[in-house]
């Protein structure tokens, strides 16, 4: 049985897609869809929750706000942007998805993402696992000492935190310092052998940013600012994002 045809109202109402268009450069090209389906054919999220990128955009364009605002599919699109890459009109569907995420009441968004964002807001580390700047610095120094002794060829290796004037500011996914600290060492060795002048920061070292994924834009901005301001305070020239 085919689904009944969708009846459109005669009078145009203010719809969600129009609000998103207002805030995106070039309106995100959201009204340029040719309905070709290139986005959906290459999207791994196609079919989940009966949704796909083209359908999502068409529903938004038709003013089906209630449906697009309530589908959990927006949390299954990874915002990878392949749909933009293959789109002949370069339509920014991921930004539409992001804005729909942001329209969900915060407490209704996926609990795991809320939790990871809230952890990152607990202290200046901005780590989704909640580790403090002191914990991070302790682990880095402890592991470094251990390896300098165990592998004397690397006795001169450094893993500085807050080194003023370092060229590179490196961030770090929290999982390594918190759960598998040995995995930090190979990267330190590579930087050492390359002669790179680098540093971690005690503030904003957490490489992951679940507040961005949560579409909590203020918190996302807070995390980015904490990290970038610290890199600038240290006089670093290049921000190396390991994520």
């Amino acid at each position: 049985m085919a689904e009944p045809a969708i009846k459109l109202g005669g009078k145009r109402k203010s719809i969600f897609i129009d609000k998103v268009k207002e805030i995106l450069p070039e309106g995100g090209n959201l009204n340029l869809c040719l309905t070709c389906g290139a986005c959906s054919s290459g999207c791994p999220a196609t079919g989940l929750e009966g949704m796909d990128p083209r359908k999502f955009l068409r529903m938004a364009a038709l003013g089906m706000d209630e449906e697009i605002m309530s589908t959990p599919w927006v949390w299954m699109c990874t915002l990878c942007q392949r749909c933009i890459y293959v789109c002949p009109m370069k339509i920014d569907i991921p930004q539409l998805v992001h804005n729909v995420r942001a329209s969900w009441p915060r407490e209704k968004r996926p609990k795991g993402i809320i939790g990871s964002c809230d952890m990152a807001l607990r202290n200046d580390s901005c780590s989704a696992m909640g580790a403090t700047p002191e914990d991070f610095t302790f682990v880095v120094e402890d592991v470094l000492e251990e390896y300098k002794e165990a592998q004397p060829e690397f006795a001169d290796m450094e893993a500085p935190v807050d080194k003023q004037g370092a060229e590179f500011f490196l961030n770090q996914n929290s999982r390594e310092p918190v759960t598998e600290p040995d995995e930090m060492v190979p990267l330190w060795k590579i930087l050492h052998l390359a002669g790179a002048n680098w540093t971690y920061g005690s503030k904003g070292w957490g490489g992951e940013n679940y507040c961005m994924f949560l579409a909590d834009d203020d918190a996302w901005k807070h995390i980015i600012k904490t990290s970038v301001n610290h890199a600038e305070d240290l006089g670093c020239k290049i921000y190396l994002n390991t994520e």
């Binding site: 949390w75 699109c77 990878c80 996926p110 795991g112 993402i113 989704a128 679940y210 994924f213």
Partner: peptide
């Protein structure tokens, strides 16, 4: 990516 790992889905 995109938060999927922590989303519970």
């Amino acid at each position: 990516g995109g938060g999927f790992l922590q989303s519970g889905f």
